[in-house]
């Protein structure tokens, strides 16, 4: 029979699992349309619940094209979902075409929302430090008809990125 302290000692293990293993979150807003919340601009209030994979961030396995959640550079209490477009050393042409191509500095990345509407992403606030990234979004787990894996893709920036192959 397990005594009460033995059971209580599992609580930190559970908290650490949500911090460094897996966790669940609900996506609000339409900045990642159509990957998440595909009906958002048509007025649908369906919200996708997603599985956050924390350990790939703990191991710093960042890849171009993967969808991640990150702390907003302008609000430490706001977690946003975006797609990694470019990593350090790559050259990116911002979407509005107004400025010159930007080389991503060391330890930074370029993130963009999938939506064609204007989103608050690196086109607004520039390259962001990798340390802001909180988790990788691996699956949509709810609603039932939307259950699927989240695949890596170019997003809307396929022809605006020059990838730096040599590290």
């Amino acid at each position: 029979m397990m005594d009460i302290s033995g059971i209580l000692a599992w609580i930190p293990v559970g908290i650490c699992f949500t911090k460094y293993g897996y966790s669940i979150a609900t996506i609000t807003g339409g900045s990642m349309e159509p990957t998440f919340n595909p009906g958002h601009t048509r007025g649908s209030s369906d919200k996708d619940t997603v599985l956050l994979e924390k350990w790939s961030v703990v191991l710093r396995r960042f890849r171009r094209g993967q969808v991640v959640t990150l702390w907003s550079p302008n609000d430490p209490y706001l977690l946003t979902a975006k797609r990694i477009i470019a990593l350090q050393g790559d050259v990116v042409q911002p979407a509005d075409g107004s400025s010159d191509p930007i080389r991503i500095p060391r330890g930074h990345c370029w993130v963009e929302g999938d939506s064609n509407e204007k989103t608050r992403d690196s086109n607004v606030y520039g390259p962001i430090p990798l340390a802001l990234i909180n988790a990788r979004v691996s699956h949509i787990v709810w609603p039932m008809r939307r259950i699927r894996a989240v695949v890596n893709s170019h997003g809307k920036a396929e022809d605006r990125v020059l990838i730096n192959e040599g590290k």
């Binding site: 710093r60 500095p105 330890g107 930074h108 430090p129 990798l130 340390a131």
Partner: peptide, 8 residues
Amino acid sequence: AASPTDPR
């Protein structure tokens, strides 16, 4: 703080 140039 976390280093902006090195997430480790």
